[in-house]
Design a binder for these strands. Sequence first.
DNA 1: AAGTGGTCTAGACCACCTT
DNA 2: AGGTGGTCTAGACCACTTG
Lengths: 233, 233
Amino acid sequence: MSLPQRLTWTDVRDHIRGHILDRTYAPGDKLPRDADLARDLGCARTTVHRAMQDLSQDGLVERKRKGGTHVRARPVTRATFDIPIIRHEVEQKGGRYGYQLTRRDIAMPPPTVLAACEVTEPREMLHLEALHLADGRPYIFEDRWIDLKTVPEIAQVDLARQSANEWLVLNRPYTRCDVRLYAISASADLARLLDCGPDSGLLVIERSTWITDAAITTVKAIAAPGYQLLAAS
Amino acid sequence: MSLPQRLTWTDVRDHIRGHILDRTYAPGDKLPRDADLARDLGCARTTVHRAMQDLSQDGLVERKRKGGTHVRARPVTRATFDIPIIRHEVEQKGGRYGYQLTRRDIAMPPPTVLAACEVTEPREMLHLEALHLADGRPYIFEDRWIDLKTVPEIAQVDLARQSANEWLVLNRPYTRCDVRLYAISASADLARLLDCGPDSGLLVIERSTWITDAAITTVKAIAAPGYQLLAAS
DNA sequence: AAGTGGTCTAGACCACCTT
DNA sequence: AGGTGGTCTAGACCACTTG
């Protein structure tokens, strides 16, 4: 493996990653100390450290003070994807975006929603159902619950014009976000809403957000057939 | 907002993130130059830079030389998930892992596979179909194509004992990985294989990997109903 | 051409964890 | 108690991008 004269931390990262992947350092192995690697590679320890931080964040190695750096024994593929605001996504693809609020009421959420929100004391929340359209065709149907205790202002917002998704993203910071991805089979209702055959396989993107432990919202976004979520690493 | 006397880069990151979230810096706004922030906060520019790198990777800001740092105008939710080796996933849940190779031949891949691999000149590849089981029940069915031009050794491996997934992860580094997530409806064949009702909604995790532009493999992992992929940010 | 982010280096000290 | 990673600082120079 040849290296440039002047090493950047990405060079070092790629070099080490290469040796992890070609099993010079096999899963479970201990890597040399940062200082030794720096000496061997001919760069500053800071540079090696920065490389290691990245490998650690990628899940390739685990680092412990005094314990040193180890290659993860059980390699994983770590992938990242973006969940954009649906309007932006449609417009970016060159489509015409449409939005219909089909339900808005205040009610008691079912236990599954309370569990997803990690809310222990049941209370009424704002319940919304809405359809996002691309070029007039159903794109994503969303079923959303918003905790009015955390976001009381939303009761005053005209959600028929601006989607709750958009208002929240722009106005309500969150500190934690959980995402669950799974598939369901279209019920008769969903098939009608999404204009697809009954029993179509539908991708569900379920998302809950919090601001320092206070629940903001839980949303089930059900995509029309053909929808793909793209991730990369 | 109060700050510790001695600032770490995570302190700075959280401080800036706080001001982005509370809209002191609103979407689209330009942030001060690193050097100015460093002066105002009373730390080295390096520290601010490290904080900014993190915010940039999280998708909160965009940085350009000379252009400066801007809060992303179109906020996205960036989520990360792990795709483990299926055996590890099952065992971690306390289940008993099983594996059956149901097909192994060398054939011409369909155009969809060639496209996924970004292979322009059609050639024969190793085609595998396998079923992963948890506690004896179908868990994930995989349909895989492996490019023998990139990974000729795999032809000699006993893939009835060790899954291709596992062999590849441990023996073949990759430099790029694309993931596509979508849902399908169970065909009669799939329903039989996965022991579920026909027309069940099934989550598909399609993955292609390359090593410096040379295709390694494309795999369609079709999960049995109930399977959830968990992500977080 | 100039401004801004990107990175390196060297030395220093801290903090956590294992022994 | 000692070893290892974690971080800071200051100054320097590079490289991209915009005006």
